[in-house]
Each structure stands twice: as C-alpha cells, then as structure tokens.
Amino acid sequence: MDNKEFIARRVARELKDGDVVNLGIGLPTLVANYVPDGVSITLQAEHGILGAGGAAKPGEEDSEIINAGGFHITVLPGASFFDSATSFGIIRGGHVDVTILGALQVDARGNIANWMVPGKRVPGMGGAMDLVVGAKEVIVAMEHTVKGSHKIMKECSYPLTAVGVVKKIITEMGVMDITKDGIVLTEIARGFTVEDVQSATDATLIIPDNIIIIEI
C-alpha cells in the first residue's frame, strides 16, 4: 500500500454517517474510495453540487457535470445542483461537516498555508480559504514531508490560507491533533518510532502515554 492510499484509508475512518464532506483535489479525493461500510456521506463540490459521485465512465461523460478539478463525474441519487453563491453559502454558513484538503504547511496553532509559494507561479486560492473557515471540521491529509523538508511547523512561513482552523493532521507517519497546548501525536503508523516522526516535524510534538498504532 502506498503512502497516499494509507493516508486516504485512515482519513476515511474520521467520517461519520450523514456527514456532508468536501474533498480537495489530489490525495483527498481518494478518501471517497475508502468510506467505511455503514457510513453514508454526501460529497459537496464547491462549484455547485451536493451528492457528487465517481468519475464518469469513458463514453458517458457529460460536459455539464464536472467536479471542481474540471473532470467529468457522475452524481448519485438524491444529488442537487446550485450556483456558486449558494454553494459558498453552504460552505461559509457551516453546513459542511468536514473538509479534507492538502497543505504546503500546517503549524502548531492550526494555521494552514496551502495556496501560495512566494516566488512561484500563483494559481490562486480558489475555494480553499472559504472551506477551511466555513467547514465545521478541517482535516489536513498529506505526506508528512516534501522532498525531505518539514511541512508540520512551529509557525507557517508561507502566506496563510486561514488562522487557527486545522484540528487534525493525518500523514503516512501518524495522526496528530492540534490542541491549545500544541500538536499531539495520537496515533503512529507501524514501522515508525516517535523519534522518526519528531525528526520529520518542525513543531515539537506532544507524546501521550497511550499512543495508538494505526492498523489499516
């Protein structure tokens, strides 16, 4: 199992029956494949869909039904479509239970930076700022480091997407909760030591006595 699948499988366990969920592009999209049995969620796409389904089969693409990445998708029974003002009213208004997205950096105060690397071409923030401020729960799903560089920081150095919004980080190394005291390593993946995770993390991790080993 590669890192991305491992992360997606672990993130999927955070979802509760009935949740309205927005998944970011890339790794977070994989989470939809691993929703546990007995849990039914409604996927929101920020350009105007509730009840988004999987990719459209080749030959069955509908140019009027795409996901937020621009790819042809299907919708599930019970789906609805609406305009962007309504959609972001749903998001900003607190009607999305969970948003799962990647990040360039997250820090010990729950700040997230995921839209701009200074000096590089800027793609724009899209709906990320709205989602992390509006969703009831923000989960960052990402690989723990990038090319050996830290992503889980004492303090973000890149321009922020929002302040103090992230409550949970899930990587191939473990699960971290962001608390008022700092980042608590609540679960660790098999094959890693606490020291491994700490050395891959800029922020100082709080290690509880009863750390859980993740079984996927």
């Binding site: 920020e46 305009d83 962007s84 003002a85 959609s87 972001f88 009213g89 998001i91 900003r92 700040n111 923030m125 899209g126 709906g127 990320a128 700022m129 709205d130 401020v133 509006g134 321009p159 922020l160 997407t161 929002a162 302040v163 103090g164």
Partner: peptide
C-alpha cells in the same frame, strides 16, 4: 476567495453595497 468573489457578484446584482465575511481574516 471563491466564495467572496461569488458573494461580491451576488451583492452587485441584489442592491447590496457590501458584506462582512470571516474568510480571509489573518491572511494577505
């Protein structure tokens, strides 16, 4: 932010001069 752009336009069409949003606080 995408929702801010959408709401700016919605207000533009609805006779609303502006709105207060929590999105973007603490960012550039």
């Amino acid at each position: 932010p995408q929702g801010t752009l959408a709401e700016k336009l919605r207000c533009g069409g609805a006779g609303i001069a502006g709105f207060y949003t929590p999105v973007g606080v603490g960012t550039i």
